[in-house]
Amino acid sequence: MSPISKLAVAAAIMAGSTAYLAYLGASTSWRYYLLVDECVHSRDKFIGQRLRVSGRVARQSLALSTDRSVVSFVLRGQQSAISVSCKGPLPDNLAEDMDVVVEGTVDEHGLLRGDKVLTRCASKYETRDGSLATGR
């Protein structure tokens, strides 16, 4: 067997094993990534499933517990909204009117029970629309 053939066999084994391991990792860690409107419209389909839902925190809806371990707010989409109750580590910059992604499950009452919130802070590469004009 020539060195090239040996290396080709090794490469094929490596590629196959990598693909299998990647598949195993994906099958145990995948979750749906939805917008609020999709989540609300197909709610029954997603009950109990592990989801990530992207939307904007509605104004005057954010309520944080004193120890910052529990938060509730309304997550707004283009046409619909969903109530969120989240328990777990919260980002420091969580605020109203901010784009966030909530990870958790939807229950039969349509409440999104989250355990992780990711913020999509708009302050780094572009300030929020209108914030400068009003001289906040």
């Binding site: 990647a22 990792g25 860690s29 979750r31 749906y32």
Partner: peptide, 13 residues
């Protein structure tokens, strides 16, 4: 449907 995968996918490989 958009699907996201977690750290296990990367760590396994």
């Amino acid at each position: 449907h958009m699907v996201q995968i977690g750290p296990a996918f990367y760590n396994n490989v």
